[in-house]
């Protein structure tokens, strides 16, 4: 119980920190970086539900991110639609496409699934890149509007954008938290552990996998839509495989299949990369090997490593306690026996 309270406190402190962060730094550039990190985190949570909790490594995640971003951009710039209507539609478009692709791709497993989604990702990227008349090809799309006003609230300043993204991030975390800690989440974990076993205990694995695939693409689309209206211009690069690899790196470093992993990994890497500006293009020289080493030695990343360490320590303590109890008991027994003898 104390542990839970502690955990709750940490979360509360983090939320408060996120809320006051803009006032602490008072630096538009840092706010910009943080907003961007939040957007990535939303995408990483999507990937985490699928790859981390259900065991399906999708390499098409950047593609869905791009679909969300391009849908929003096209609906607002070309169709001149109301921003929030476009926003909702962008999420629906991404999810529906996710459902169609999930329906087919989820019939494959393990490396076939990874290769399949890799190819799907490429198709999405190449279509965006080549479909000049719609997407503007390599030139991309410019003039994407900032999020529309909600009543009196405008989203023209970095700070207001920061809070908008933070709002969506908190919702994402809450939703993912609730999914993971529900029977539905347990179902996903069961599928990850063994799909055969899950099926024999009566779980409709296909239905569940499809559901989680759609949620995963939904979050990718949400991140994409927020990105488009935050950066205000997009190009085909956002759908390229390197974005998927970035998201995957954040997830693995933070801890795949853990709730805090996406936050820890993304913020850590984004800030370290910021500090190592000079390394910007070469940051993967550091993070690439880290990714590989983590998978070999700490497959559940920083967060998972911490959880395991804590669990082991708890167990050791418990064993110690048991041992002491036993020793005490046997000591009592021997003393009782010697008393008898004596």
């Amino acid at each position: 119980m104390a542990g839970l309270l502690k955990q709750r406190n940490i979360i509360a402190v983090l939320i408060v920190f996120a809320i006051v962060f803009p006032f602490i730094t008072n630096n538009n550039y840092f706010i910009h970086i943080m907003t961007l990190a939040f957007i990535w985190i939303i995408g990483v949570y999507g990937l985490n539900l699928l790859a981390g909790y259900t065991g399906y490594l999708s390499l098409a995640h950047a593609g869905f991110f791009a679909i969300g971003a391009y849908s929003l951009a096209l609906l607002t710039t070309k169709a001149q639609m109301n921003y929030w209507l476009a926003f909702v539609l962008a999420l629906i478009i991404t999810s529906v496409l996710g459902m169609i692709i999930g329906l087919i791709s989820l019939r494959t497993k393990e490396h076939f699934f990874a290769i399949y989604t890799l190819c799907v990702g490429y198709i999405i990227y190449l279509v965006i890149d080549k479909w000049d008349s719609l997407t503007g090809g390599v030139r991309g799309l410019i003039g994407i509007p900032a999020p529309g006003n909600i009543g009196p609230i405008e989203f023209n300043t970095p700070i207001s954008n920061y809070y908008l993204v933070l709002f969506f991030l908190l919702i994402t975390v809450l939703v993912v938290y609730r999914i993971v800690h529900s029977l539905t989440g347990r179902t996903y974990i069961a599928i990850r552990n063994s799909e055969d076993l899950a099926q024999t205990i009566g779980i409709n694995t296909m239905k569940n996998k499809l559901m989680v695939f759609v949620i995963s693409t939904f979050f990718a689309g949400l991140a994409g839509a927020l990105y488009a209206s935050f950066i205000r211009f997009i190009g085909p690069d956002i759908g390229y495989i390197t974005i998927t690899f970035d998201l995957l790196t954040y997830l693995i470093v933070g801890g795949i299949g853990t709730l805090s992993g996406p936050v820890i990994g993304t913020i850590l890497i984004v800030w370290v990369s910021q500090q190592l500006q000079f390394l910007q293009d070469y940051r993967m020289m550091i993070f690439g090997p880290i990714l590989t080493l983590l998978v070999i030695f700490y497959p559940r990343g920083i967060s998972g490593g911490f959880i395991d360490w804590r669990a082991k320590r708890k167990e050791k303590k418990q064993n110690q306690l048991n041992l002491e109890n036993q020793q005490m008991l046997s000591a009592q027994e021997t003393s009782a026996a010697s008393n008898k003898n004596g």
């Binding site: 690899f245 993967m284 990714l291 590989t292 497959p299």
Partner: peptide
């Protein structure tokens, strides 16, 4: 895991 590890190597070599 092996896929992620391989991706890590790939990212490293490219950088």
């Amino acid at each position: 895991h092996d896929k992620i590890a391989a991706i890590g190597i790939m990212l490293f070599l490219e950088a």
